[in-house]
């Protein structure tokens, strides 16, 4: 067990290293003087010289990398000249909406998609199964922003049940916060539900073909028990894996969804940063999202041991 966790931990080091190198190189690959790029269009030559000095841009590239990674590891992500703040501050301000959106979506999507996936597998070939599969293809195909605008049009504009856009912090007014989370979460959920319900169905179907399912039937167990006790638990690992990989879709979707619904989160920040060519912010956001993604998948890997005793050894 410890060995397993240790292996997993060691395995993510090179992954994060590649991410860090990529993020570091981003700025160096940009045409032009990196210091000038960071400082933005209205910078004075003194400011540029100052940045050049801080990042060690006159040093060889590996020294620059050492300086940069040293700063990052200390939580110093640099300064956003566009927003006139440190990047760390900026991100701290923007975390809440994204986190709220991700959690609401995840909870909603998983609690919907797993049951329908199981049911679809159980009634393979039925009308319900076909409907789930059909929905799933549709969910993959309709872009999030189109879904978002459709939902806004129907529920906010035509029916007037929910606010169109905007965000209220959870600490300010919980009810208003919730109201403003419904449509974005729903929007973001569609693709996620499509993915998870499909993989749940496929995994359960595959498990239902296993010999031990036949054994369970030969024991005289009812179909429900066979499905819930034997099939689902064995299907859990691939389902969890895909939920983990789906986090990437969730993050990508958050960028678009936040823009549609005007949520002041990290996704929106990413777009603003790209539009204003605010590199320290872009770099940090990418690094942050990647680390989160890798860590979540690490946790999921470790959680396999709860479902499958074979992995512990």
């Amino acid at each position: 067990m410890l060995d397993f966790i240790a292996r997993r931990l060691i395995a993510i080091i090179p992954v994060l290293a590649v991410v860090a190198i990529f993020v570091f190189l981003m700025l160096r690959l940009t045409p032009g003087d990196p210091a000038a790029v960071i400082a933005g269009d209205n910078a004075t030559s003194d400011q540029i010289a100052d940045i050049r000095n801080k990042l060690g841009l006159d040093e060889p590239i590996w020294t620059q990398f050492a300086i940069w990674i040293g700063n990052v590891l200390q939580g110093n992500f640099g300064e956003s000249f566009f927003f006139k703040k440190t990047v760390a501050e900026l991100i701290a301000q923007r975390v809440e909406p994204t986190l709220a959106l991700a959690i609401c979506t995840l909870l909603f999507a998983v609690s919907v998609s797993v049951p329908i996936g199981v049911l679809a597998a159980y009634r393979q070939g039925s009308v319900f199964d076909r409907a789930v599969m059909g929905f799933s293809v549709l969910g993959f195909s309709v872009p999030g922003f189109v879904i978002g605008y459709c939902l806004i049009y129907v529920f906010a504009i035509e029916l007037g049940w929910l606010p169109v856009q905007g965000y209220v912090r959870i600490g300010v007014n919980f009810w208003q916060f919730l109201e403003r989370m419904v449509l974005p979460s729903l929007t973001l959920s569609v693709g996620f539900i499509a993915l998870i319900s499909r993989i749940t169905r496929a995994s359960v179907l595959e498990v239902l073909n296993e010999d031990y399912i036949r054994t369970a039937r030969a024991k005289g167990l009812s179909n429900r028990v066979v499905l819930m006790r034997h099939a689902l638990r064995n299907a859990a690992v691939p389902i969890l894996t895909v939920i983990g990989l789906g986090i990437a879709i969730l993050i990508g979707g958050a960028v678009v969804t936040e823009s549609v619904f005007g949520l002041p989160g990290l996704g929106r920040l990413t777009v603003e940063a790209v539009l204003s060519r605010d590199f320290p912010t872009i770099q940090t956001v990418i690094l942050l999202f990647s680390v989160v993604y890798v860590v979540i998948n690490l946790l999921i890997d470790i959680s396999y041991t709860l479902f499958d005793p074979r992995i512990r050894y």
Binding site: E210, D211, Y212, R214, T215, A216, R217, A218, K219, G220, L221, V225, R229, H230, R233, N234, F307, D308, P309, R310
Partner: peptide
């Protein structure tokens, strides 16, 4: 009737048991 009047054992003992349940629990189910 299954397992009370008639029972069956299979060819592949490697795959015929549920990998995520203890052997005792699997018999206990019966």
């Amino acid at each position: 009737l299954r397992c009370t009047r008639m029972s069956m054992i299979f060819q592949e003992p490697m795959t015929a048991l549920n990998p995520v349940m203890t052997c005792g629990d699997q018999i206990d189910e019966v």
